[in-house]
Write a protein that binds this DNA or RNA. Sequence first.
DNA 1: AATATAAATAAGAACGTTACTATTTGGAGG
DNA 2: CCTCCAAATAGTAACGTTCTTATTTATATT
Lengths: 152, 152
Amino acid sequence: MTETEIIQKIKTKGFKITSQRRAIIKALLVSDRPPTAKAVFEIVRDKYPDVSLDTVYRNLNLLARIGCVTKINLKNSEKSRFELLKHHHHYHLVCLGCGEAVCLKKCLLDMHIDVLKGKGYKIVGHAFEIYGYCPSCCNAAEKSKEVELCVK
Amino acid sequence: MTETEIIQKIKTKGFKITSQRRAIIKALLVSDRPPTAKAVFEIVRDKYPDVSLDTVYRNLNLLARIGCVTKINLKNSEKSRFELLKHHHHYHLVCLGCGEAVCLKKCLLDMHIDVLKGKGYKIVGHAFEIYGYCPSCCNAAEKSKEVELCVK
DNA sequence: AATATAAATAAGAACGTTACTATTTGGAGG
DNA sequence: CCTCCAAATAGTAACGTTCTTATTTATATT
């Protein structure tokens, strides 16, 4: 999404445009990979030294709620990352070793979602992530006695 | 899983059996719905007043890593819950209004997982949750200007 | 049974994120 | 251009979870 589209959406929803909010959106746009809240905070602070971390979180979560941003919540207590909504949203296999994400085609949620919508549910989001180790990390993992397949 | 099976698995993996660890497993077994870490902590503390919350977390996470427990990480910063592994694992639609979870049949992950395993990935877990509002909560949600479908 | 060692523990600090409160600000209507 | 009010903000406290460190404990080996 472009800055203009995001601003437009915020206005449509009845929220206000503040300078901090603009700066947070810009920070998302200039980040190459989905940034953490703290990374956004540091970018915004260059221009607005008094901005609070709370403001950054509040706005990132707002953008997620109105559908401009996807909040990527990896398990294992890693920090959340905030990804600008792409038109072709997809899912990932996240390697717990190196952190790299392999893209998966989206092809399996629609059935459930359609059924639920038909029954009067309102769907606002979903999480679908597979966790594991990529081949090059498997050697290291092999030495650990903890690693095991959860899904047969 | 039974207590004996869990203990056996811990031993197999080379970890030790401590009294706190036993008490944590028992707490999982007596809980009707998957408990939070704090709930486990309070049960265990009845018998071991000096147990630390850290110990509870450490052990619950260990049980998750060795495949005895599923860690349920709802978005929106709710607390994690820890569910003893059932043989027929399934997924949920979690209502953000009332918190109720509707069970979904498991029928869609296997394809991806098989492909990945064929390529040498080691799968240790996954997250699959749909977030939204159930019909009876939709009325309340209707009044909010924030609610919107993310998935068309 | 005594010993050695890796693992587990308690206590508290640290981290990521959200909640609270008093103050400031955007933007709609006069 | 003013006024007004809901919304947004900064600052800080609180919450859930993990990390660090020094101490204790479980288990294997003698």
